[in-house]
Nucleic acid binder design. Structure first.
Lengths: 232, 232
DNA sequence: CTTCGTCTTTGCGCCAGCGCAAATAGGAGA
DNA sequence: TCTCCTATTTGCGCTGGCGCAAAGACGAAG
């Protein structure tokens, strides 16, 4: 479970850093835990720290006016979160809630600024990480604007499998407890629609699983649904 | 029109840099122009350069599977674009098309990496700029997932006014030629729906203008439409 | 002034997906 | 094993907004 200290070197954020730099960074990091269902920070909190997830899974959630929740991003081990607000010196745009018991390393905003100024490569790595996420966010904008719910759900499942997939005999299992509601919030649909879609796929043998567990039995067909223009 | 060299210092990207750093950066920048309707780069081009817009307006567009276009972002003077792909060393995720005659400064990917390593503050500034955009993109994800077309259009108009608004006697005029189609692509709706909505607002005196020109006559009412839960 | 092309409006039909509500089904804990 | 609680399924009606198609308006060019 989680990633070891030596694995940190392989995390994108620290790529290319010297052992010395790494030691310094770890020295000022504060380990922090969050049990499933609890939060690292809330939306509109003053952004004081940024995080690197070392174990577990965290969902970044924004609440709409009417109480609807949107999962802006699922964070897995080795990924960073909370950096955007810290750089801008503002408030967190969303809430970071642990989906499973999670652990992270936290840095104070000022410490991060200093670290980047001292180790420019860290800034470059962070820029790349944030850039990748911007790209993902833009892709989601396009998808939400142009694609139907079914396809968005397919993409969401594939993304989750990519991020937390475990190959088993029966297919790829998603190692995060994903309920229909969470899936709906992530794909930009409603609980009901997601349930209907998954039920249909279940009957077709494309997916399987039970409560909170999803297994992709035929990832290829899902991929086809997600990308093909016409359907099988 | 556009921003002068001295204004660059005030552009977020260069905040806090020394005159010396700035001079060095400008020395390796290549000025580049694009007439309205032409492009700085195309989607899936190998990302070789990143840009700082000095004059005009540029839209970043992604094409959907079915030919539908989505405007991922409108870029105004002083803003940067094309940085994400350059940092990741990949292809541009979208096309950058000039909406009006535009001018920009371009840097080679490698030059930017070197500049950031040499001037870490530049990296911090870039991180902040990209972060702000990530935040905007995430906001749009939430809006597309939870809000109705009318509200999204209202928000889009307010954003454009914020970015390129000119106060006139009759209200705030958007200084970019914005057609219904462009508005639709930006708000995540269709040409028809946008036309209907704008026609209704026109009758109510909320907006005005003619072909490709939009004037916000009562920005407050638009704001109410964009943010209020109940309507007037 | 006329013509042409693009942008815009508007009517009408349709359907994906939401909203409500109620029935089920699994799991976890006692 | 039994019970309770939460997750999930599913029926049904409704509607926002898309899709098509055609007409109308404005500007630019000649």
């Amino acid at each position: 479970m989680g990633i070891s200290s030596t694995d940190l070197r392989r995390a994108g954020l620290f790529r290319g850093l010297t052992g010395c730099d790494l030691t310094g960074l770890l020295a000022v990091a504060r380990p922090q835990q969050a049990a499933a269902g609890t939060t690292f920070f809330l939306a509109d909190d003053q952004a004081a720290r940024c995080y690197l997830l070392t174990a577990g899974y965290v969902k970044l959630v924004q609440a709409g006016l009417d109480g609807a929740e949107v999962v802006v991003r699922m964070v897995g081990p080795g990924e960073i979160f909370g950096w955007v607000a810290v750089m801008g010196g503002s408030c967190y745009p969303g809430t970071a809630e642990a989906v499973t018991d999670s652990a992270a390393l936290a840095w104070d905003a000022e410490a991060v600024r200093r670290a980047i100024l001292a180790t420019p490569l860290l800034g470059l790595n962070a820029l790349e990480a944030v850039g990748r996420r911007l790209r993902e966010a833009q892709d989601r904008v396009r998808e939400l604007a142009t694609e139907r719910a079914e396809r968005r759900v397919a993409r969401t499942l594939l993304r989750l499998a990519d991020q937390a997939g475990t190959s088993t005999s029966g297919g790829v299992e998603i190692a995060i407890p994903v309920g229909r509601q969470l899936l709906a919030d992530t794909a930009g649909a409603t609980l009901h629609t997601v349930s209907r879609i998954l039920a249909a796929w279940d009957h077709q043998g494309i997916i399987g699983g039970s409560r909170q567990r999803i297994i992709l039995r035929q990832p290829d067909r899902l991929r086809a649904l997600a990308e093909d223009d016409s359907e099988a």
